[in-house]
């Protein structure tokens, strides 16, 4: 399998996980509303657990968006400069993004280690699970970005994407 194919398979898997996480969040938060009004009780873990699933969904989804080049950006400058200059800008941009991802990974590892024995108030889950989302995000995005950098260095510009969309 090509590297590109491998990345696509990985994203397909992440998409499935994200769908499951979102469904679990819907069930838990809705379940709590129903329990509170219907049965005068509640799932005590619902609030904390749904927040943690949300954090994980955010970072796994952000990996997908990175692979699909779907993160919000602007091409005001890039669209107006010659191809060579554009390539130089994109290589520089890619290196900066790699650096930022590296810092997120590095900091998340430190935080995961510091929180090894710390527990979440309600569920009692160790807090490193929370910071591990940053570790997975950091490693995955380094992989995707480094491959992207390799493509750029070979002079391959990414295909023109549809207008990036934010759903606001």
């Amino acid at each position: 399998m090509t590297m590109q194919g491998l990345i696509e398979q990985y994203c397909k898997f992440l998409r499935l996980v994200c769908v499951l996480l979102l469904a679990a969040m819907v069930v838990m938060v809705m379940g709590n509303v129903v329990l509170r009004y219907g049965f005068n009780s509640g799932l005590l873990v619902s609030e904390e657990l749904s927040r943690w699933l949300f954090v994980w969904m955010t970072f796994l989804g952000a990996i997908i968006a990175l692979a699909e080049r779907a993160h919000l950006g602007t091409d005001v400058l890039l669209a107006r400069i010659p191809k060579k200059a554009r390539l130089v800008c994109l290589i520089l941009a890619q290196i900066l993004m790699i650096y930022a991802s590296w810092l997120v990974l590095d900091g998340s590892l430190t935080q995961a280690e510091l929180n090894w024995f710390v527990t979440a108030p309600v569920t009692g889950t160790p807090v490193w699970v929370f910071y591990a989302s940053g570790v997975v995000f950091g490693i995955s995005s380094l992989w995707i970005l480094l491959y992207g950098l390799y493509q750029l260095l070979r002079g391959r510009l990414p295909e023109e994407e549809d207008a990036n969309q934010s759903h606001l």
Binding site: L72, G73, L92, A93
Partner: peptide, 8 residues
């Protein structure tokens, strides 16, 4: 401007 997405 050099093409880094806003989040990054």
């Amino acid at each position: 401007l050099i093409g880094v997405p806003i989040a990054y």
